[in-house]
Nucleic acid binder design. Structure first.
Length: 699
DNA sequence: ATTAGGG
DNA sequence: CCCTAAT
């Protein structure tokens, strides 16, 4: 096996010096890599000296004087797509990847986005000519205009920090004339160093963890930075240049314990064991067996080598001691596993949610207390299942709570997920009060649908557009029928409910609980823009739901086409300012659903779902088509579960449907707002999919 | 505060 | 639609 090469990012400064990349620059490259799925780091050098940006006949071109690493100049003329009429139809002026065209790997990353706008202010002729509409209109830019010569622009640009010439994000919002092109030249350039490059900054991590270097008893606290470096190397098999002692200590400690819970301790290493001593309590040191044995470490390293031979960014800031990053101490940062097979490179790797942790904790607690510790093999495999591997760290005796973690594999990195005390956070569940009210004594697990009374009392007027009775007068201000509600999601965890109840039993007095609940409810009453609709037939009631109208959908699609998928706040601000009930998150969610719908429209999927033309059908085909186009444009992929989710609520749409349990597209309130008393449920427990009553509107 | 994703 | 992690 060949030793992996660790690439470090450096930047070629104007004068040819090689400077270590800053954190931000690293991040940028990171992004670029992700976007382009490009394993090669192009050499991009400073392009600070843009000679000018020329707007001519709708063409924007940028001429840059690029200084190559050899000091020679290369002229790069980058031509960007022509801006065409209605923005919704044009292709975004996003042009990454100009780089590749340069054999010398010298290039400019250029990014013109229709989304943002260059702020033009002042009495410049350019500005004056472009103020009128909210849409870019290059026809008003007559002839050839060199932005460079526009005084106000110069002024604007010169006010920008540092050298970044035309990055206009910061400028946008204050702009009274939102017309223009957002232009973004990223001056940061990077060198890819490979092999035995003579450049000193390229380092090879050939060393392996070697605990033999940790002799005798070592107290991390007493070590100098240099010694800490040694220890670090012995622990991780690689160098670090971080000089922050605390960071080093924590890292080392984490490396040795494979645990993140090292914050408050003092460490002593003795015979490959880490002895942890709490500073404050000062009791006998509690010994933690070095839970991460050498071969385990080795395994991890091997795993990384195998899976991610390409790049290892030391995100944690080995180069910079930038506080922010240093504080990041999670182990996963140490071992970044990039799975080349995954298309998910655009997705964030998420840590498990608290809830997830809690739930697993529950499971683990109940079914395993002391199973043999599984190996950490998973660390090398990104696809290993997420099944938690219990791995108690023996830390007994003394009153100190044991630090118990379990090995998790997230995004391929072996992560220690600490068990958490399962105490409910946040406000109690909404259905708690009614439960307590009706059955203060025994809180049944089985929730029955609560009467409408609750919902009724909960509903309240909101400042803006709240419809009390959507059925009767649906969205007066919209004058449109809502699209089939695509909500299909289950109401929140029953488990949590149970949990709650259990807690309630063991916690405060019932009375107290009730009181609390009441308060909570009161709060709910006042601040929720709840769209409480009670159906005449006692049909499930959905709070916080407001069906999307076609015009809203159209608006959303429009917004996406204009500003791009992802600029939800932008879209919200500019397109949904009147709809206070649509948050940017809602837009995002809706878009996701539209994506599903549109993709489910594709022959393949539709065939697969063999289902009629439900749900998606409610949205006009041309809109779905548009959605698809946009999705493509923004290189969005269909959500993972296209076929499952699309099938609206109507009688047995998609593949979903686990009939037995009554799990239909959407969950019924009965499972959320519980009522007690077994009898009542007879009729109300009849689970049936909620069909959005009012969908006759179009199509 | 925004965004992405899972539920 | 809600929740929460990540940024």
């Amino acid at each position: 096996m060949v030793d992996p090469v660790v690439y470090k990012l450096v930047r070629v400064d104007g004068d040819g010096r090689i400077v270590p990349a800053t954190d931000d620059e690293v991040m940028e490259v990171d992004e670029v890599l992700l976007e382009e799925n490009n394993s090669e780091l192009p050499l991009v050098v400073d392009v600070v000296q843009a000679e000018g940006c020329i707007v001519k006949d709708g063409l924007v071109s940028v001429r840059n004087n690029i200084k190559g690493s050899e000091g020679t100049s290369t002229n790069a003329d980058v031509k960007v797509q022509k801006l065409k009429g209605p923005l919704e139809e044009n292709v975004p002026l996003v042009s990454h990847g100009v780089n590749d065209k340069f054999s010398t790997q010298v290039g400019v990353e250029m990014c013109l986005k229709p989304a943002g706008f260059l702020k033009l202010s002042g009495p410049s002729s350019l500005a004056a000519g472009t103020c009128s509409s909210s849409m870019p209109d290059f026809s008003k830019i007559k002839g050839e205009v060199c932005l460079k010569t526009v005084p106000s622009l110069r002024k604007t640009v010169s006010s920008l920090p540092e050298t970044v010439p035309l990055v206009s994000h910061a400028v946008n919002d204050k702009c009274s004339t939102q017309v223009g092109v957002e232009m973004c030249l990223k001056p940061a350039g990077f060198l890819k160093l490979s092999g035995s490059s003579s450049l000193a900054s390229a380092t090879c991590s050939s060393s392996m963890p070697d605990f033999s270097k940790i002799k005798g008893e070592v107290c991390l606290d007493n070590l100098s930075v240099k010694e800490l470096h040694e220890t670090f190397r012995a622990t991780f098999g690689r160098e670090t240049t971080v000089k922050d002692k605390l960071w080093l200590k924590r890292r080392i400690a984490m490396g040795l314990t494979n645990s993140c819970d090292v914050a408050t301790s003092t460490f002593i290493i003795k015979d490959k064991k880490l002895i942890r001593r709490e500073k404050i309590e000062g009791g006998a040191p509690c010994e933690i067996k070095c839970s991460k044995s050498e071969d385990q470490i080795d395994g991890i390293f091997k795993g990384r080598r195998k899976d991610s031979p390409i790049i290892s960014f030391n995100k944690a800031g080995d180069e910079q001691v930038s506080g922010k990053r240093l504080r990041k101490s999670d182990v996963e940062e140490e071992y970044i596993c990039e799975d080349p097979h995954t298309n998910e490179h655009t997705k964030r790797v998420r840590k498990p949610t608290k809830r997830y942790i809690e739930e697993l904790s529950e499971v683990d607690n109940s079914e395993s207390s002391g199973k043999p510790v599984p190996s950490v093999k998973s660390s090398g495999n990104c696809h290993s299942d997420l099944k938690p591997q219990v791995r108690p760290v023996q830390n007994v005796g003394l009153d100190r709570p044991a630090v118990v973690t379990r090995q998790e594999s997230f995004g391929g990195s072996g992560v220690q997920v600490p068990y958490v005390s399962r105490v409910r956070r946040g406000r109690p569940r909404e259905n708690f009060m009614p439960l307590m009210k009706f059955h203060p004594g025994s809180m049944g697990m089985d929730a029955k649908p609560v009467t409408k009374t609750l919902d009724v009392c909960v509903s309240q007027p909101d400042s803006e557009n709240v419809e009390k009775d959507p059925k009767a007068k649906l969205a007066p201000q919209q004058s449109e029928q809502p699209i089939v509600a695509e909500r299909k999601k289950e109401e929140k965890q029953n488990t949590e409910d149970k949990e709650n109840h259990n807690e309630a039993k063991t916690c405060n007095s019932v009375a107290q609980q009730v009181e609390t609940k009441n308060l909570d409810l009161a709060e709910d009453n006042s601040d929720h823009n709840v769209n409480t609709q009670s159906t005449t037939k006692g049909e499930p009631i959905r709070k916080h739901h407001r069906a999307w109208t076609l015009s809203e959908v159209t608006q959303l699609v429009e917004g996406v086409s204009r500003y791009g998928a992802g600029r939800w706040s932008e879209i919200k601000r500019l397109g949904f300012s009147a709809c206070s009930y649509r948050t940017s998150v809602d837009l995002k969610d809706k878009w996701r659903n539209l994506l599903r719908a549109s993709f489910a429209h594709s022959p393949a999927v539709r065939d697969m779902t063999n289902s009629k033309k439900q749900a998606a059908a409610t949205i006009p085909a041309h809109i779905l088509l548009r959605v698809r186009e946009l999705a493509e444009k923004y290189s969005q992929v269909p959500p993972p579960d296209v076929c499952r989710k699309v099938g609206g609520g109507r009688g047995g749409g998609g593949l979903r449907r686990k009939v037995g349990g009554g799990v239909f597209g959407r969950k019924i309130v009965s499972q959320k707002v519980g009522v007690v008393g077994g009898g009542v449920s007879a009729s109300s427990s009849v689970v049936r999919p909620i069909v959005n009553e009012t969908r006759s509107g179009f199509l």
